[in-house]
Amino acid sequence: MNTALWIVAGLLATVLLISTSKMFVPREKIAAVGGTAAQWVLDFSPGALKAIGALELLAAAGLILPAVLDIAPVLVPVTATCVALLFTGAVVMRLRRGEKAAVVLDLFYLALAVFVAWGRFGPESFTG
């Protein structure tokens, strides 16, 4: 179980790190390259996209570093809960935009974040 939680946390951190590209790439370019699944960036201001990207960067670090460095490892499940909230917002945004095909991936990431939060708060907590 511990290994599965580490793998899932690493996968989520990787997805979040890749997603931070919205902080550096103009939203028009993201929308042009990403196809219909990336059109959502046009609904947000560049400042909002940078804020979302910064939160994703912090989340990627919070899923891994506290446990690896053994400094406040309780932050891992707290971060996973926050990531679940982030993807809940993504699911709501996709549904409002009518992007039912794209919502599947966000639901998958949401389930992974809930799994990490449950696992690290419960059976495989770092404090127990």
Rank of each mutant, 00 (worst) to 15 (best):
43 D>S: 12
103 V>A: 15
14 T>R: 01
13 A>D: 11
73 P>V: 06
19 S>R: 11
15 V>S: 10
104 V>E: 03
39 Q>C: 03
57 L>I: 00
54 A>C: 08
39 Q>K: 14
94 R>Q: 15
33 V>G: 02
38 A>H: 07
23 M>A: 13
87 F>N: 04
93 M>T: 13
71 I>N: 06
45 S>C: 06
111 A>D: 08
121 F>R: 01
109 Y>P: 00
2 N>W: 09
50 K>G: 07
127 T>F: 15
68 V>G: 03
42 L>C: 07
93 M>F: 07
30 I>T: 05
104 V>Q: 08
35 G>W: 08
105 L>W: 13
94 R>F: 07
49 L>T: 06
92 V>W: 10
67 A>I: 01
82 C>H: 03
48 A>R: 14
2 N>G: 10
55 L>S: 06
73 P>L: 08
41 V>H: 04
45 S>D: 09
114 V>N: 01
1 M>K: 13
79 T>L: 07
108 F>P: 00
60 A>R: 01
66 P>A: 04
115 F>N: 03
81 T>D: 04
79 T>F: 03
47 G>T: 09
7 I>V: 15
90 A>F: 10
124 E>G: 07
24 F>S: 07
124 E>F: 14
59 A>Y: 06
30 I>V: 14
41 V>D: 09
118 W>E: 05
124 E>L: 13
58 L>F: 10
94 R>H: 15
42 L>A: 12
31 A>G: 08
62 G>M: 04
18 I>H: 11
23 M>R: 09
100 K>D: 06
116 V>P: 04
8 V>N: 02
121 F>T: 06
105 L>V: 14
110 L>T: 10
42 L>R: 10
15 V>H: 05
85 L>G: 09
64 I>Q: 05
93 M>L: 10
78 V>A: 14
55 L>V: 02
16 L>V: 00
108 F>V: 15
4 A>V: 14
71 I>F: 15
13 A>E: 10
46 P>N: 07
28 E>S: 12
60 A>V: 07
83 V>I: 10
9 A>M: 03
57 L>W: 00
16 L>C: 05
74 V>W: 15
37 A>I: 08
103 V>E: 09
104 V>P: 04
25 V>W: 06
87 F>W: 08
80 A>Q: 05
64 I>N: 03
8 V>P: 00
15 V>I: 14
29 K>A: 11
52 I>P: 00
95 L>P: 03
30 I>F: 06
80 A>F: 02
83 V>E: 00
21 S>H: 12
16 L>K: 00
13 A>W: 01
56 E>D: 08
74 V>S: 13
40 W>T: 05
115 F>E: 09
105 L>F: 15
38 A>P: 02
5 L>M: 11
123 P>H: 13
49 L>N: 04
62 G>D: 08
120 R>P: 05
43 D>V: 08
106 D>H: 14
123 P>A: 12
59 A>V: 03
23 M>T: 07
1 M>C: 12
60 A>S: 13
75 L>N: 05
24 F>Y: 11
112 L>R: 00
126 F>R: 00
9 A>R: 05
58 L>M: 11
15 V>R: 06
113 A>Y: 01
101 A>T: 13
33 V>F: 11
65 L>F: 13
29 K>L: 14
49 L>C: 07
113 A>L: 04
123 P>I: 12
87 F>Y: 14
108 F>L: 15
83 V>P: 03
128 G>Y: 10
115 F>M: 10
23 M>D: 09
75 L>A: 11
